[in-house]
Amino acid sequence: MSTPTETALARRWRLEINMGTEAVPDWQLCPAVTEFQWTAEPNHEDDTSYDTDGWGENTKTGQDWEVEVTFNRKATPDSTAYSAVHEAIRLAFFAYGEPSKVHLRFFDRNGLPEAYVGKGLPNWEPQGGEARDLDQVQVTFTGTGPLTPITNPMAA
């Protein structure tokens, strides 16, 4: 194996939404992503006791994750419909219960090992703009349940 020398690019991430069911998934690309960022913040609690000779100890007691994505809205050439994936996210934003959860996965589009799957609650935020601006939406998916590492679907 050679030593890595190339810097990875931010645009390496690919976001897909399950447009099917968990039993029969239909993973579809979330098109026109212009920004993508994810975090998975652990919760650490102080677990120090007299038994540690004054050294601090901590225990991981939980973890929260979030995906923030901005994309350009895409419509059909006759301007009668938006991207089905974008619409599924928007409609989940207005829903409650299970329909409000978006089953998503994101991974390195070049096939490198980073790849994750989970369910998130979307916060849909149109970005507005001036007359010459593109119609963009920022969506923050707040994880509900685990964010699980998976085998990258693009891996060779």
Rank of each mutant, 00 (worst) to 15 (best):
A8I: 05
T140G: 08
R109T: 14
G111N: 01
L9K: 08
Q63S: 09
K119Y: 06
W38R: 02
A115L: 12
A155H: 08
H44I: 13
L147Q: 04
D108S: 10
A156S: 15
W13C: 05
T80W: 00
S83M: 05
P126T: 10
G111T: 05
P153M: 01
Q127T: 10
E35W: 11
I89G: 07
R90H: 10
W65R: 00
A32M: 14
Q136E: 15
L121T: 08
V117L: 13
A40K: 05
H103F: 03
P4Q: 10
E6C: 07
L112M: 13
A92R: 05
G20H: 04
P122M: 07
V69I: 09
H103W: 00
G118V: 00
F94G: 13
A32I: 12
E125D: 08
T5Q: 14
K119A: 01
R12S: 14
L134G: 13
L104E: 05
E130H: 02
D51F: 05
T151M: 08
V67L: 12
T52A: 06
H44Q: 14
L15Q: 04
P99H: 06
M154P: 10
S83P: 02
S100F: 08
G129D: 00
Q127V: 07
A32Y: 13
D53C: 12
E57Y: 08
G20T: 01
N152W: 04
D64F: 01
Y116M: 10
N110S: 14
E6K: 02
G128A: 02
T34I: 15
E45H: 08
G20D: 04
G145K: 05
T39S: 14
W124A: 09
W124V: 00
V24W: 03
R90A: 11
A88C: 09
L104A: 04
E66Q: 14
N43G: 11
I17N: 00
F93E: 07
L9P: 01
S2Q: 12
W13Q: 00
G62H: 04
S83V: 03
T151C: 03
E125W: 03
A75T: 15
E66S: 11
R12F: 09
V102G: 03
L121F: 06
A8H: 05
G118H: 01
A32N: 15
T7A: 00
P25A: 07
V33Y: 00
P4I: 09
V139D: 05
N72G: 11
V139Y: 03
